[in-house]
Design a protein around this nucleic acid. Structure first.
Lengths: 225, 225
DNA sequence: TTCCTACGGATTGTCGACAATCGGAGAAAA
DNA sequence: TTTTCTCCGATTGTCGACAATCCGTAGGAA
């Protein structure tokens, strides 16, 4: 019997996953200082593996390390998020363009199934937007995988993905965007099914631009309050 | 008095830089196994910092780590490079589009100065293509910086940059491409000067596509030999 | 001969302790 | 009271040693 996590790996990997989760969920506040000894103690491991984990998170841009001054959780200011969404727009657009060529019919129909489940979730309870967010990320990642471009999968999957999730947790519960987002997803899948890569790319880019506008406005309101 | 390197930082950082350099220059062959104790010995440090360095390089995708089986230098096969150039095409295209808006006139004229030096180098000695490569990377990075998008700078500057350089070292000395490349660079700067972002993006994408074709053909010839 | 098994060397993963460095509290002088 | 300097606690950086794991090899049985 394993404790909880399916894939254990090395202790440093475990620490990296746990830290990433804590950061993404906001359990560790932005800009918070990360004390090595403290964290190692709470994770029940030595400082060696923890330091390796911090190096890993630094590569993921989840923490920022300063020599002889420790590591702090990254702060997602407006400019950072703006830059992130800009990059994401072109990368996911590219993924759509490729996916329209590379994905099998079966994979595309699975996307529709995913959206059906998604729609069902929205109908049942408008509240749990969290699961919507995760489902949305699943949708996006499935398309990225469909591009068959490993570099894209690495960039969008393992790395920026986490920043995205972090952002979602901060600015989530804007339930009013779930329905238009779902419709846009449907359109994208439709374009993929018709093997129209250019259209799929355009739709995806608009979709992400819309998401950014939504988040941007929310940050404005948050700042005003 | 410092030994050699201007920015020392922590030992792990030093090790990461030295390893990255050795990998990029081919001093460490692709797929070669990296023995921790051995490397730590040769660098005159303990295994702790070296392990952190390996984590860092893993994030840069220069090495691939397998739990309980050590780290190996990444292998750049055709598919990997193809994916890399695809991603690079859209990212650098985006950088051009933004740079046409964001760069100051002064910065753009500096780009021309850079190309002048570049041209001079080619005239003086067609041989040293290496410096051309470095100069080319400088040119590209200056534009990326001009985009004012920190995420782009991180992705293209610190990370993929290294893979690119690695690829260059392998397939360099194709001097027949230096001149058309220089002309394309000139065209791009011209588009930037006219603040025509769309044109600049298109030219950059074509430029990178051309570079990939050139490298691809070279790999074919290499494989045939 | 071939396949399975058990052993041994080598390598990675982990820990605890020591050294180096930084930030802040508190005392002394202006 | 304010400023500056010094010292001390805390934290990071580094090392050596020990434990866990894996790969290759040799040996034996079918």
């Amino acid at each position: 019997m394993q404790t909880q996590v399916p894939q254990e790996g090395t202790l440093a990997d475990v620490a990296a996953r746990r830290l990433a989760h804590s950061i993404v969920t906001g359990e560790l506040a932005q800009g918070q200082k990360l004390n090595e000894a403290e964290l190692a103690e709470s994770f029940g491991m030595g400082r060696g593996p923890l330091r390796e984990a911090l190096r890993h998170l630094e590569g993921m841009r989840l923490v920022k390390r300063i020599p002889n001054a420790g590591a702090r959780v990254v702060v997602l200011d407006r400019k950072t998020l703006s830059d992130l969404y800009g990059v994401r727009e072109v990368l996911e657009g590219m993924a759509c363009r490729l996916a329209a060529i590379e994905m099998s019919d079966d994979e595309i129909s699975q996307l529709n199934t995913l959206l059906d489940q998604h729609e069902e979730q929205i109908k049942q309870q408008g509240g749990k937007v969290y699961s919507q967010s995760e489902g949305d990320l699943d949708f996006h990642y499935q398309i990225v995988r469909g591009s068959r471009n490993q570099m894209l999968m690495d960039l969008l999957g393992s790395e920026q993905y986490q920043l995205l999730r972090m952002c979602r947790y901060r600015t989530s519960r804007n339930a009013q965007r779930t329905k238009p987002a779902l419709n846009q997803h449907r359109q994208i899948v439709e374009a993929l099914a018709q093997r129209d890569g250019e259209l799929a790319e355009m739709l995806m880019r608009r979709h992400i631009q819309g998401a950014w506008r939504s988040i941007s406005e929310m940050m404005d309101k948050e700042a005003a309050a």
